[in-house]
Design a protein around this nucleic acid. Structure first.
Lengths: 136, 136
DNA sequence: CTCTTTCGCTTTATTTTTGAAAGGAGTTCA
DNA sequence: TGAACTCCTTTCAAAAATAAAGCGAAAGAG
């Protein structure tokens, strides 16, 4: 289904999704129209879900990056879920998980103070375990 | 430093980094050359770190997505770190964290069998707690 | 207040890229 | 052998990017 050239295309677009079709073609030894047709096929098949940018969160003012394991006390998660919907600016992703907790929440904050406020509000809806990202 | 238009640009490029400068300009009420200049400035400042694609991991054959909290027994992490370097295809990211563990490892696997093999090898270098991603 | 500089934008014009269309080579299958 | 299909290249018109020139508002100096 996906051949080596397709993998190479995905690799190159992962590194730089703004390559022109001509440049991308040169990298994978195809002409512009040929590579363009393959990319469109990958989009249609849903292999490529979208095109995005990598942002420097520190330069956007988010100095704190954290993962929070959520343990909801009760069996209904709605209060927690509606709470995080009010916190979209700080939330990167909310993964439903099996294992040690119900959710794994990846989030970002401008400061520890704001993280602290967040945690206090969070604690009204769920228990948590906090991991601050130090590197990489 | 970053004004409202810059934020709008980042928002639009996050949704679709392959917009033409002309289309992007229309969305933020600028001409092509004007947006292009702003985007180049955002790149030079390092706010935009790169352009990438979102891939459907399931369609690439990765059916299992997991977060693994790593607890290294000894104080030197080198054995663990060199082990994960041999596993690049399965590893999305390795975060150094404070909190419950030394690292948080995000990874993906084609099957539970391959995850199992990975865990057995991992266990030679570190203890771990496994969380499988179920959704979102 | 006026002159000058700077900044950010638009307009214009050239170069480059995209994308549609036509056609060719290799493969499969009857 | 030849029809149908796939995947590519070539060609060319339309669209976009890019470089350059110029405009107008804001800031600073005399």
């Amino acid at each position: 289904m996906l051949d080596y050239t397709d993998m190479r295309i995905l690799e190159e677009l992962s590194n730089n999704s703004r390559l022109s079709m001509k440049e991308l073609g040169a990298k994978v030894h195809l002409t512009g129209p040929a590579v363009s047709a393959r990319v469109m096929k990958l989009e249609d098949e849903g292999v490529i879900e979208g095109y995005s940018i990598k942002l420097n969160q520190v330069k956007l003012g988010y100095f704190v990056h954290a993962f929070i394991t959520i343990i909801t006390e009760s069996t209904h998660h709605a209060p927690y879920l509606s709470f995080i919907k009010t916190q979209e600016g700080n939330i990167v992703r909310n993964y439903k998980i099996s294992g040690d907790g119900c959710y794994l929440l990846e989030c970002k904050f401008p400061s520890n103070e704001i993280l602290n406020t967040f945690l206090e509000e969070l604690n009204e809806h769920a228990n948590y375990k906090l991991s601050i990202v130090i590197g990489k």
